[in-house]
Design a protein around this nucleic acid. Structure first.
Lengths: 341, 341
DNA sequence: TTGAAAGCGATACCAA
DNA sequence: TTGGTATCGCTTTCAA
């Protein structure tokens, strides 16, 4: 019973008393050109030997794989988790296997990952997460992806419409701008902003949208009330502490460029004795699941994350290069963290 | 420049003016048995052609891969996300690529996934998530995994110490028992419990520990106050609503078998006009990140999820079969959701 | 309907 | 230190 290697097609064929070619036909290709009797024998043999086709061998023989590569910045983050969920869902529907790698927000790591992943000859490479602009690394990345695409691979970016590849583009600018309008509508006038490093495109777009939304009403944010922090819960906490230390000085609302930061902000405020939504309002972006579990529930901008993942996968698989950019719109949701004034 | 296929080793060798064997040596194996001049030529050629070794071809030639397969129940869940984070971290440290599949809590799907994954000939298959006991599917799964292992593969289970494979075993029973003790210590006497379906081992163990912990003090939970629900945030919400409808009737504390459910419970209570921690205390299990972001912060049992993932990976890679079971201990953390009475 | 045999892209042994 | 060549597990013509 115990063998040192997995059963091969050869084994199956021998056990079934047919040629390897026939066994191959039964187990994969055109079953209908094989006599029923042989079909049964092969199937029986395969079951008996617990045969599982060697995917690498198939890949090499066929010249293509059933693999899709997904690169995310971090799995812990619910933002990426949701997107990953959508991607895997769509991939499984298409009979594809997803290989996921985590870049941990390092461009170098991301480049290295793409290099490795390319070796798997995946049908598609999907990149998500905001990359840093203007570095050499980025140039190298584009080159790598180009080589991959020229060889017939499909590249899809999520939320990075400035690179020459297919993209699922999230309307960060527009969403933030609408959010600003809505908040002004609620009566807010004095804002603070918590953002990530200037290199992060997503953060930049959201800030820009927010600021320009405010400026429609002649409102602007003093430099003093703009804090830069890590793109994470911890970053949000740190930023809030920083704000408190600098003196809130009448600030009515803090906009954090994403929900995890916003939630961090709320927690830190509470620790500092301020009641979020009451003493100071808070708004985020993404509308991740936990946004409704905090108290008060977090005002945010809905991004259909799971759907973004699904779309990305579909875009990766589609042939026509017409729809190079798939826009995904966003939607303001006002909740308890920003009560009307 | 543009070619229809990725550059092959053959291409590189020809461009460099050396044999394929030499090129192979340079790009992978023993570089030191090659004249420096040739090393340079090959490297240059590889860079020029943007060569990326065909991993499948390597796998087939070498007879082994650099792949590790990870099966989770769902990516959206922070529980799995954290574990996945740990696994990928450890895998990357070992130079391995992680392929992740999502079983969506369906045993059939899980079986199918394992079958497919086996075809990749991964170095290890790591299974996480609580499987349903006693089904045919489970039997088939064990058979599948056995075949894989007999062929030299490494199988690691997370939190399932009842199957004949290496396991990272989380002390669900003990943690829940200690939690019960601690809560009684705080003065609580009347409990309700929110659990998942009876087939889920994790849920069962936690319930058992909790119940037995209470019984040390002669306390038990009336059937009326035990609600079964989906192992998710939504399940927690539904369960809480159910409890409210049945009548809380003096219940002082609700224990949910995991944090996502507990958070759902808190939110639903609040929607029903009850203040969590004040009108009714809530405790969970896992100590996922968001546990400290809700208000009041959630009392829970810490499970070092990320570390669990790392351990699983290490266990998968270790040779000695001595330490078949790696225990991971858990720790009670009391927070605002269970104030002393 | 079937089987023999030629690849697919790499590795590694054996001679040179 | 090099190159020729068998080999890995499978698919896919091409003949029979």
């Amino acid at each position: 019973m115990a063998r040192e290697h997995q059963a091969t097609l050869h084994d199956v064929a021998r056990t079934a008393g047919v040629s390897q070619a026939t066994a191959s036909r039964v187990l994969n290709g055109s079953i209908r050109n094989v006599r029923q009797e042989n079909v049964d024998r092969v199937l029986a043999a395969a079951a008996e030997l617990n045969y599982a086709p060697h995917l690498s061998a198939q890949a090499i023989a066929r010249g293509s794989t059933n693999t899709v590569a997904l690169v995310v910045s971090g799995v812990d983050d619910p933002y990426f988790a949701s997107i990953a969920g959508g991607v895997t869902q769509a991939a499984e529907a298409a009979g594809l296997i997803v290989t996921m790698a985590v870049a941990d927000r390092s461009p170098e790591r991301e480049l290295q990952i793409v290099r490795t992943l390319r070796g798997m000859r995946p049908r598609a490479i999907i990149l998500t997460g905001s990359r840093i602009d203007g570095t050499d690394t980025r140039h190298a990345l584009v080159e790598e992806l180009d080589a991959y695409r020229e060889a017939g691979g499909s590249v899809v970016l999520i939320s990075q419409h400035d690179l020459p590849f297919r993209t699922v583009s999230i309307d960060n600018y527009g969403g933030a701008r609408q959010l600003a309008r809505a908040l002004v509508g609620l009566g807010y006038r004095r804002f603070a902003m918590v953002r990530a490093g200037a290199g992060l495109r997503t953060s930049r777009d959201r800030c820009k949208g927010f600021v320009e939304g405010l400026s429609e009403f002649g409102i602007d944010i003093d430099e003093r009330f703009v804090v830069e922090a890590e793109f994470s819960r911890r970053g949000g906490c740190a930023a809030a502490r920083e704000l408190v230390q600098r003196g809130l000085d009448g600030t009515e609302l803090v906009f954090a460029v994403n929900d995890v930061m916003a939630i961090g902000v709320m927690t830190a405020f509470r620790d500092a004795g301020l009641v979020p939504g009451q003493d100071v309002a808070v708004a985020g972006f993404d509308d991740i699941g936990p946004a409704v579990d905090v108290d008060p529930a977090l005002t945010s901008v809905t991004v259909p994350l799971r759907q973004v993942g699904v779309r990305a996968m579909q875009l990766a698989l589609s042939d026509d290069d017409a729809s190079r950019i798939v826009p995904v719109s966003t939607n303001v949701v006002l909740r308890g963290s920003t009560p009307g004034r």
